[in-house]
C-alpha cells in the first residue's frame, strides 16, 4: 500500500550526489530544487503538503559534514549535525544546545538550520545569531560558481544558493542568552549571541526578531553600558508577532537578553 501522507517519489526527481562537486552540479541554479539536509524541516513540509518538490537534492552522501580547525580558523560543513556543536565554546555551544532535543539535533544540520525559510509559526534559524556574532563567513554555490562572503550578506539570499559550509575565527570570549522554550520542539522565540574577537572586536546578534538573524550594531556601539546597549538594540530590529511570542513581548525581553550577554562577556574577560 502506498504511503498516503507523502508526496510520492514518482513525482519528484531525487538527486543524491556523492561529492561536493556533484552537489553543486545537481543544485544548478536552484530553480525548483528542494535541498534536503537532515530532513527535520523539509520532511514535515512535504508530509503535510506545504511544499512540493519537483527535484529533491539529498545531501547526506555528499561528504559535506565535519568540523575542521586550522590554527584559530574553524570550518564547519553544511551537513554537520547540530549536536556536534553542543560542546563548543559560547556562543555556539549553548546556542546549539538550545535547539530542539537530542534526537533532532543529531539529525538536523548546520546548513539546514541556517538556511531554513521562515516558518509558519516562527523564524527557524536558531543558530544564525551565534554564527553572526562570530563574524562567520558562508561558502556557497549557485550556477557552478562558488563564493565566500559574510554570513549576514548570505542570509537574505540563502534560498537561492547552496550553502557548503561556514568558517569563523575562534573568539576570545562568547556568550548566549535565549528565552526558555516551552517544549523542545519549539524554535527559538528570541535569543542573543555575543562574541569578542581576539582583536577586541565585539559582535552582537539576535535570532527571533525578524525573518532571519541580524547583527545589533547600535547595541555594539553602546556596549560599555549594558543597560543602554539593551535599549539601543531595539533600533536594530523589527520584532514581529507569531505563535511563540508577540512583538510587544520581544521588545520587552530583547534589552534584557542583550544585557545578560554583555554582563557574561564582561565576567569572562
Amino acid at each position: 500500500m502506498a504511503a498516503a501522507s507523502v508526496v510520492t517519489d514518482a513525482a519528484t526527481e531525487v538527486l543524491m550526489p556523492g561529492s561536493e562537486d556533484e552537489a553543486i552540479a545537481a543544485f544548478g541554479d536552484g530553480a525548483e530544487v528542494v535541498v534536503v539536509g537532515g530532513g527535520t524541516i523539509v520532511l514535515p513540509d512535504l508530509t503535510y503538503r506545504r511544499r512540493r518538490a519537483r527535484k529533491a537534492l539529498m545531501l547526506g552522501g555528499a561528504g559535506l559534514a565535519g568540523i575542521e580547525t586550522q590554527g584559530s580558523r574553524v570550518t564547519i560543513g553544511t551537513m554537520t549535525p547540530v549536536q556536534e556543536l553542543v560542546d563548543m565554546p559560547a556562543p555556539l555551544g549553548p546556542c546549539a544546545a538550545n535547539v530542539a532535543d537530542l534526537e533532532i539535533r543529531s539529525q538536523g544540520t548546520v546548513g539546514g538550520n541556517l538556511c531554513a525559510r521562515e516558518g509558519y509559526e516562527a523564524p527557524r534559524g536558531d543558530l544564525q545569531s551565534a554564527f553572526l556574532a562570530l563574524g562567520a563567513s558562508a561558502r556557497s554555490a549557485a550556477n557552478g560558481d562558488v563564493t565566500e562572503e559574510p554570513l549576514e550578506d548570505f542570509l537574505p539570499k540563502r534560498r537561492e544558493r547552496l550553502l557548503l559550509g561556514v568558517s569563523f575565527d575562534e573568539p576570545a570570549a562568547g556568550a548566549f542568552a535565549g528565552l526558555d522554550r516551552p517544549h523542545t520542539h519549539d524554535y527559538t522565540a528570541l535569543a542573543v549571541s555575543g562574541a569578542k574577537g581576539t582583536d577586541g572586536t565585539l559582535r552582537l546578534a539576535a535570532t527571533g526578531t525578524g525573518s532571519w538573524g541580524v547583527r545589533l550594531p547600535s547595541a555594539e556601539a553602546a556596549a560599555e553600558d549594558p543597560v543602554a546597549a539593551g535599549e539601543a538594540a531595539l533600533e536594530d530590529v523589527s520584532p514581529h508577532d507569531d505563535a511563540l511570542a508577540s512583538a510587544w513581548y520581544r521588545t520587552k525581553v530583547l534589552p534584557v537578553l542583550v544585557r545578560r550577554v554583555l554582563d557574561e562577556l564582561k565576567e569572562s574577560a
Binding site: 537532515g38 527535520t40 520532511l43 514535515p44 539529498m58 547526506g60 533532532i104 539529525q107
Partner: peptide, 13 residues
Amino acid sequence: GEPRRSCLLPAGY
C-alpha cells in the same frame, strides 16, 4: 543504535 525520529528521516538516509 542511535535514536532518530523516523517521521523526519528520509528513508534514503
